[in-house]
Structure formats: structure tokens, C-alpha cells
Design a binder for these strands. Structure first.
Length: 657
DNA sequence: TTAGGGTTAG
């Protein structure tokens, strides 16, 4: 009878003394063709009592592999002199399932003895297996040793390298393929494009080849092309590939929607989502994640809620990335309560769910709540990762939780095995720097084991801006100007610090440098949703039909506020103007225009929600506090970093941002 | 035999 009444556990070794002939070592016997044992289970219906008799050891190995008994299969292999290609295929598949590199090595040693290392089919499987184990050297070796390199073998190595992120090697292998005269197939283009999406030259090269060889219309290739151009930020190229694709499926549509959502064009993303329905292509959970992201970029709660309703109708809320995206969307649109409700409704939260909720609290300045969620995360057994610490440390710095932040930073590596990267150091420098502990912030930078990047020096510069430290700001800028030569923001910040110190020669020198270098400052832009329409404002924009009314209201408010103690912060204006002119410029800031427009066009008691593309200016912050008291309004402003909730003359950030 | 689109930070 079959030696195991019940299927053996993979850990159970076979006792050698009880080995039937078929299990004997290879050299011991060759008379094992018919295995006289009955298997008390069938391959496909394990619960049934159907008997299956293996015809020979090859068959037995295949059955054992299928049943998850790899160790036993290997024992049988050791007694089988003529394993077939199919037997090796099963064995390699089982190694992949068991995720066992050591068993894979044993199988490979044996298949080399049998000459199967020259079988391109087996080589393909081996390369895939080594790719799974992240053993690129082994994958390369298998490839090199296979004399007959079929397109499958080439594609397998392309895929392995692409998955491992060895992008440059993928491109050079792709070029080698071209020289080798092998006929490419659509898979070759898909794999190559995935890896070269960061290089303009490589994408255009592969696109050109695919066009010439007639593969660009293949739906897999066109989808990857849409994605490759999207990742380069070449939205119009993505769109052209999409428009010209003869076949568009849910993948193609999802790729183009993601392209717009990620490249700052949420309106187009939502428009395409509507067109998709018109083309009778049903969206899936992946499509919905990009659509939700588009709503998060748009910051318009109404649209997001409609999309959420659709998600619920289609049952996508049980697919974790979907609620994860919803948490971020609600948090970014200013409704933390709804974000929390989605978070609470997730049955099996993954690390991204937790990180998203922590981020939500962080951007709303609720540091203690963020830490509490972090602690719940740890208690629930989910391991924090790099992103977790960026968010939770950011939460601490947003509200000035210095001791807590330092404690978390110190525990990162020791308790959680997460090695700090530059962003974590930047959070701590920001945390100490904002609190005025600039010397300690500098010590942290000096002690860093990695190169402090622009994030770290930028955090120090920001702290110098708050505490008017010219000398240290200049030191930070020595690094920043070298690291980010085209970032005009650093020059503006330093100019602000000089202006505060009334070093006007230095201000002018910096302004001249910015001009000479042709650097473009990002101009401030704010937007507001009124009666389901979105209005955007810039300081030079006079297009809004109510702009006169808006200006008049601001002048009136300014007068009233001055009587209550408001002093316009004219030092923020870096132009050589008199105080009156500076005040006028300050009143023209985009966030003030949006605020006045909101006051004019909303009903009493209604919350005003404004978004801004840059950090909220200090003068606008003061004005918004005044207005929240004067007009008895709740005003929520989202700037590039976080939310400010204004009520009764106070802001949730406690002027700490 | 193999493939394409998605979630968290900065």
C-alpha cells in the first residue's frame, strides 16, 4: 500500500529502510518502472477517495509536486535515471510554490547532469524561478549557458532584469537582442518598455522598433507605451498612443486615466472615466484607484463622494488598495471623519491602510492621533515601514511634538529595523529647527551616516526662515544651490531671510541671480469650489467677473482688521516699494482673493474650503484668522504641506507650520 | 512557457 495513509507533510522525511524500490538511489536499481503503490487521493479532487496509480516514477514525482510534497518528490528523483522535461517542469514549479532556493539548486544540479541545462524550455523556467528568488546572477548564468536561446529565454531574462529594477541592463540586453537577429515578439516590447520608462531615449527607441515591426498596435504593447510616456511626464505622447490604439481594454483605459491623475490633470482623468463608460468598457478596482486619486488631486469632496458611491455599488471596497486610496482622498479633501470611517471599515488592513490614516492625521496637524494610530498599528502586528516613519515623524513636526518625535526616530532602527533615510532626518531637522533648536538640528546633520540631500538642507533653511538665522541659512544654501540649481524656491526663501534682516543689497543680488539663471518661480495659485464649480485665482489674474468686488471687499476687511490689531507683514514683499504699495501687493495674494470670493458667494455659516499650490503665506494666515472671527466662519485651507482649520480667530496649526 | 494599468512619503 501507499506508505502514507494520509498525504505526508512536506517536512516528514521518508525512512530509508521503508523505501520501496522507486525511492532507491539512482545507482541502486533500475527496475522501478512500475511503482506498485496506490495513491489514496486524486490529483484534482483531493477530498475524493478516487484511487490514482502512478505509472512510473516520473508520474509519481509530478503527482507529489502537485500535492505539495517537494521533498518526497526529490527523493523519488534521486532514484529515477531518466527524468523527463515534464518532470523537471513540475519540480521547478514546486520549488517556485515552496519558494525554496535550496531545493531549486538541488534540482538544477541534477538537471545539469541529465543535460537539461541545454533545454530552452527548462532554462526559461529556471530563469523565472531565479527571478522569483531575486538571484539575478543565477538567472544570467542560466541564460549564458543555454546555447539555443529561443525568444522565451530572452524574454525571461528581460523580465527578470526588469522586475529587479536593473533598467540599464534591460536596455542593453534589448539592444543585444536586436543584434542577435532573434525575432522579437510582443512580450519583448512589454518587458523592455517597463524597464526603460525612466529614459526618454530608450522609450522612443523601443517605440520606434515596435512601430516598424508592427507590434505597436498590440494591446499589451500600446498599454505599456501609454504608461511609459506617462512616467516620463509626456502626457500628450501617452494620449496619442491611446487615441491611435486599435484595441483598448480595461488596462489601456486604466493606464491613460492613471497618466492624467498622476500628471496633474485630474479633470481629464475624470472625463476619460466618463468616456470609458461610453465605450462600454467596465472599470475594475485598478481603474477606480486612479479615479479616486484624481479626486484627491482635485480636492473636491463632492466628486469624491460620487465615486465612492460607485465603488460601493460595484463591491470594490473590499479590495484593499481601493479603501486605501479613499482614505487619502477624504483626508486630502479635508474630511478626516469620512477618512476614518473608511479606515475603520477595512477588515484586513495592510501597511498602506495604516500609513494612509497616519498621513491623514499628520496633514491635519493631529500629531497625537497620528501617534495613537501608529501604536495601534504596531499592536495589531503590522510592521511599520519607511513611509510610516516619514508620516508619523512629519505629524510630530507639524505640531511640535519634539520628545515624541525624537523617541520615534531613535526607535526606528533599534525596535523596528527601519534604517532612516534622508527624509526621516529631514523630519527631525524640521522638528528641532522649528522649535528653535538649530544647534541640535545641525548636530543631527553632522552625525548623519548618509549624504544629507536637499530635503535635509531644505528643512534647515525653513527653520532659519522662522528664526531669522542668516548665517545658517547661507550655509544651508551653499549646499542647496549646488544640489538643486534650478529650484527658485530656495533663492526666494533666502531672499526672505535677508529681507527680514533688512539686508536689501543681498536681496537684490539674489533676485539678479535668479533672473540671470532664468529660473522660474512657481507662482501662487489658489482655488475654491462654489456651488459645484471650481474657481482658481492667481495674483495677476483678473479674469474672474467678480474681481472688482473681491478687491473692494479685501480693502474694506483690511481696514477693519487694522483697527483690531492687524499689521500687514510687508517684509514678505521683496520689491523696492513703499509700504502702501507693499500692502496692496499683499492684498492681491491668490489665497486672499479666493477667500473673499468664498465670502461673497457662500451663505452664512457655510464652511469655506480653499486650496493653495504653495505654502500658505504668513500674512494670509493672519488675515484668515481675523476673517474666521469677523465673519464667524469655519475656513479650511489646504496648502502644499498640510491643512489649516481656522475658527474663532485661531488656526489648528497653532501658528506652527 | 512569458505580458499590460492601481494604493502610502518626499
Amino acid at each position: 500500500m501507499w506508505p502514507f495513509a494520509n498525504p505526508p507533510s512536506p517536512q516528514t522525511p521518508l525512512p530509508p529502510q521503508s523505501s520501496p524500490k522507486g525511492f532507491l538511489p539512482k545507482a541502486a536499481s533500475h527496475s522501478y518502472q512500475k511503482t506498485p503503490y496506490t495513491i489514496k487521493f486524486s490529483l484534482h479532487t483531493p477530498s475524493s477517495e478516487t484511487s490514482t496509480r502512478p505509472v512510473n516514477n516520473n508520474h509519481l514525482i509530478q503527482i507529489l509536486c502537485n500535492r505539495g510534497h517537494l521533498k518526497q518528490a526529490l527523493l523519488v528523483l534521486s532514484g529515477e535515471p531518466n527524468p523527463t522535461q515534464k518532470t523537471y517542469e513540475y519540480l521547478l514549479l514546486a520549488c517556485a510554490r515552496e519558494n525554496s532556493p535550496s531545493d531549486a539548486s538541488a534540482v538544477r544540479r541534477r538537471l545539469i547532469e541529465d543535460g537539461f541545462d541545454q533545454d530552452p524550455f527548462i532554462s526559461t523556467k529556471l530563469i523565472n524561478l531565479y527571478s522569483q528568488f531575486n538571484s539575478l546572477d543565477d538567472a544570467r548564468e542560466v541564460f549564458e549557458k543555454t546555447r539555443e536561446k529561443t525568444i522565451y529565454v530572452w524574454n525571461a531574462l528581460l523580465r527578470a532584469l526588469a522586475l529587479a529594477g536593473a533598467d540599464e541592463e534591460v536596455v542593453s540586453l534589448y539592444r543585444e537582442m536586436g543584434r542577435s537577429q532573434i525575432a522579437f515578439d510582443s512580450f519583448s516590447y512589454s518587458h523592455a518598455l517597463k524597464a526603460c520608462a525612466g529614459s526618454e531615449r530608450a522609450v522612443r527607441e523601443v517605440h520606434g522598433h515596435a512601430l516598424r515591426r508592427g507590434f505597436s498596435s498590440c494591446v499589451h504593447v500600446s498599454t505599456t507605451l501609454v504608461d511609459a510616456y506617462a512616467r516620463l511626464g509626456w502626457v500628450s505622447f501617452s494620449r496619442r498612443v491611446f487615441d491611435e490604439a486599435p484595441v483598448k481594454n480595461v488596462f489601456t483605459w486604466s493606464a491613460i486615466i492613471a497618466c492624467y491623475a498622476k500628471n496633474g490633470s485630474p479633470f481629464e482623468a475624470l472625463e476619460l472615466f466618463r468616456s470609458m463608460a461610453g465605450a462600454n468598457v467596465l472599470p475594475n478596482s485598478v481603474t477606480m484607484v486612479s479615479v479616486i486619486q484624481a479626486c484627491a488631486v482635485l480636492l473636491v469632496l463632492g466628486h469624491g463622494k460620487l465615486i465612492h458611491a460607485y465603488v460601493l455599488r460595484r463591491g470594490f471596497e473590499s479590495i484593499v488598495p481601493v479603501p486605501n486610496a479613499l482614505i487619502v482622498m477624504y483626508a486630502k479633501c479635508g474630511d478626516l471623519e469620512l477618512a476614518r470611517r473608511v479606515f475603520d471599515g477595512i477588515r484586513k488592513r495592510d501597511v498602506v491602510s495604516w500609513n494612509s490614516m497616519i498621513l491623514g492625521y499628520a496633514i491635519h496637524g493631529l500629531g497625537r492621533e497620528a501617534i495613537q494610530v501608529f501604536e495601534e498599528m504596531v499592536d495589531s502586528g503590522v510592521r511599520p515601514n519607511i513611509v510610516t516613519f516619514v508620516s508619523v515623524l512629519g505629524a510630530c513636526s507639524h505640531i511640535g511634538l519634539i520628545e515624541e518625535g525624537q523617541r520615534l526616530f531613535e526607535s526606528m532602527a533599534s525596535e523596528y529595523g527601519v534604517t532612516p533615510i534622508a527624509e526621516h532626518y529631514a523630519c527631525v531637522v524640521d522638528l528641532l529647527g522649528r522649535a528653535g533648536r538649530l544647534n541640535e538640528a545641525c548636530e543631527i546633520i553632522e552625525e548623519m551616516r548618509i549624504e544629507p540631500g536637499p530635503a535635509v538642507w531644505g528643512a534647515l533653511l525653513g527653520a532659519c526662515r522662522i528664526h531669522n538665522n542668516v548665517e545658517l541659512a547661507e550655509r544651508a544654501c551653499e549646499h542647496l544651490f549646488g544640489l538643486e540649481p534650478t529650484n527658485a524656491g530656495n533663492y526666494v526663501l533666502l531672499a526672505n531671510i535677508y529681507a527680514e534682516a533688512e539686508l536689501w543689497d543681498e536681496v537684490n543680488r539674489l533676485k539678479k541671480t535668479v533672473e540671470e539663471k532664468g529660473l522660474q518661480k512657481v507662482s501662487g495659485c489658489s482655488w475654491i469650489e462654489v456651488k459645484k464649480k471650481i474657481y482658481s485665482f492667481t495674483s495677476v489674474d483678473e479674469l474672474n467677473p467678480q474681481i472688482e468686488l473681491v478687491h473692494a471687499l479685501l480693502v474694506k476687511l483690511s481696514g477693519e482688521m487694522k483697527e483690531s490689531g492687524y499689521v500687514p507683514n510687508t517684509k514678505l514683499v521683496l520689491y523696492d516699494l513703499n509700504d502702501q504699495e507693499k500692502e496692496e501687493l499683499l492684498l492681491g495674494h491668490s489665497e486672499k482673493l479666493a477667500l473673499a470670493f468664498g465670502l461673497i458667494n457662500s451663505s452664512k455659516g457655510e464652511t469655506i474650503r480653499i486650496s493653495k499650490n504653495l505654502r500658505l503665506c504668513e500674512d494670509c494666515h493672519s488675515v484668515t484668522k481675523f476673517v474666521s472671527r469677523f465673519a464667524n466662519r469655519e475656513i479650511i485651507v489646504r496648502d502644499v504641506n498640510r491643512f489649516h482649520h481656522f475658527r474663532d480667530g485661531r488656526c489648528s496649526c497653532a501658528d506652527y507650520w
